[in-house]
Simulated scan of single mutants.
Amino acid sequence: MNRRARAERQGRRAETIAAWWLRLHGWRILAQRARVPGGEVDLVARRGGTLAFVEVKARADERAAGMALDRSRLRRVAVAAERLATRYGHGCDIIRIDALYVVPRRLPRHVPDVWRG
Score class of each variant (00 low, 15 high):
residue 63 R to N: 14
residue 32 Q to E: 15
residue 52 A to Y: 00
residue 27 W to Q: 03
residue 25 H to D: 14
residue 14 A to Y: 00
residue 26 G to V: 11
residue 44 V to M: 14
residue 44 V to T: 07
residue 39 G to F: 07
residue 61 D to Y: 07
residue 12 R to L: 09
residue 78 A to E: 13
residue 77 V to A: 15
residue 10 Q to V: 05
residue 71 R to N: 12
residue 53 F to L: 05
residue 28 R to Y: 04
residue 69 L to Y: 12
residue 21 W to L: 05
residue 37 P to N: 04
residue 23 R to W: 07
residue 69 L to K: 03
residue 12 R to E: 14
residue 44 V to A: 11
residue 34 A to Q: 06
residue 21 W to R: 07
residue 8 E to H: 12
residue 36 V to T: 14
residue 27 W to G: 00
residue 11 G to W: 01
residue 32 Q to G: 13
residue 14 A to S: 03
residue 19 A to I: 05
residue 72 S to M: 10
residue 65 A to K: 05
residue 42 D to W: 03
residue 75 R to E: 13
residue 61 D to H: 11
residue 42 D to N: 14
residue 58 A to F: 05
residue 26 G to A: 06
residue 45 A to C: 11
residue 17 I to W: 04
residue 81 A to N: 02
residue 74 L to V: 12
residue 8 E to K: 12
residue 12 R to A: 07
residue 24 L to Q: 11
residue 55 E to F: 01
residue 42 D to R: 03
residue 46 R to C: 10
residue 64 A to L: 13
residue 28 R to L: 15
residue 78 A to F: 03
residue 12 R to N: 08
residue 40 E to K: 04
residue 65 A to M: 14
residue 58 A to T: 02
residue 42 D to A: 06
residue 71 R to I: 01
residue 45 A to S: 09
residue 73 R to C: 04
residue 81 A to V: 02
residue 25 H to Y: 08
residue 38 G to M: 09
residue 66 G to L: 14
residue 51 L to F: 08
residue 59 R to K: 04
residue 12 R to K: 10
residue 6 R to I: 12
residue 64 A to E: 15
residue 38 G to L: 05
